[in-house]
């Protein structure tokens, strides 16, 4: 069920939070549109988890405002049942069966006991660990625990889901399944999802909007298409390597600033100007050489843009 509101699903303004002398968030501000899948990117220590924790009411901001579905997060209790979260570093109880723990959470949402158990079983089936429902968490691997956390985030009818590193520690099949689930929820129920991940390719594939955080500051925020279009790049994979003469000829196409070898048979053209004309001219020159371009991408990849704004150095 989507809230009838003119506001974005999440509105963040001048949000700051410090831990002792470390500024985790510094006047952060951006909007998460209703029904979007919004990626939150940033290197380690950028402030992503702090932002998630404030959005969920775990931590109190020092200043600024954060509204979810039109509700100030200071009144997070008013969002009961409308927002769920997969926290990154929260743990489940060791001595209570999985079904009991999740059914209890669902009962807190308002379900009766029988309904809660049925819904939990369905959610566990969705993430593939239903057979463990009567056992304790000691029976689960790290990836299964993550899936259990995801199952609890998908319980009920949330309008906003916050997923902090949902696919870290999952094998590719399970990671794919989680991405599909998020997409299905967006399509079928217009659920707004705020998702953080270190996997930039995953974010680029899944999200329609992103924000990039670095050292507590927002470096960029907006639709993924807009952000990746900002780079004047054309990257192409070819069936064979270019000769030096061919490379020189392709570098002379009007509007091309330079040609660079990125990997065997993979080349990148830096473009001197915006516009499709230069891209078309390069592709036409390749075809004239009898080369069929593959895996063509125009503009930056999210990874390139991310590295450009946050720097290459590991943290």
């Amino acid at each position: 069920m989507t809230a009838v509101t003119t506001e974005p699903a999440i509105r963040i303004r001048d949000l700051s939070k410090s831990f002792d002398r470390t500024k985790a968030l510094d006047a952060v501000g951006f909007d998460v549109p209703v029904g979007s899948i919004f990626g939150l990117l940033g290197p380690n220590g950028a402030g992503k988890t702090t932002l998630f924790s404030i959005a969920a009411g775990f931590l109190r901001a020092d200043s600024g405002s954060l509204r979810v579905l039109g509700v100030d997060i200071a009144r997070v209790a008013d969002l009961q049942g409308r927002m769920t979260i997969l926290p990154q570093d929260a743990s489940f109880q060791r001595n209570v069966p999985i079904l009991e723990q999740l059914a209890f959470l669902r009962q807190l949402d308002g379900s009766d006991r029988a309904t809660a158990e049925r819904e939990v079983t369905e959610a566990l089936e969705l993430v593939g660990i239903a057979e463990y429902r009567k056992r304790g968490i000691h029976a689960l691997s790290h990836g299964m625990l993550k899936r259990m956390g995801i199952a609890q985030a998908f319980l009920g009818q949330p309008e906003v889901i916050l997923l902090d590193e949902p696919t870290s520690g999952l094998d590719p099949q399970n990671a794919r399944q989680i991405r599909d689930l998020v997409r299905d929820l967006q399509r079928s129920r217009q659920v707004t999802t705020l998702i953080s991940s270190h996997n930039l390719a995953e974010i680029q594939e899944l999200c329609d909007h992103v924000a990039i955080l670095d050292r507590g500051l927002v470096k960029a925020a907006g639709p993924v298409a807009e952000i990746t279009r900002q780079g004047r790049m054309l990257e192409v994979e070819l069936p064979r390597e270019l000769t030096a003469a061919e490379q020189a000829r392709l570098g002379e196409v009007p509007g091309v600033a330079a040609v660079e070898v990125r990997a065997p048979r993979r080349y990148r053209w830096s473009l001197a100007a915006d516009g499709d004309e230069v891209v078309i001219a390069v592709l036409r020159a390749l075809l004239d050489l009898g080369l069929a371009p593959r895996n063509v991408s125009a503009g930056n990849s999210l990874e390139e843009y991310f590295l450009a704004v946050t720097g290459d150095a590991p943290r």
Binding site: A56, G81, I85, F92, L105
Partner: peptide
């Protein structure tokens, strides 16, 4: 944290 968004 699993309870905090469900109850006050």
């Amino acid at each position: 944290r699993y309870q905090l968004l469900r109850v006050d």
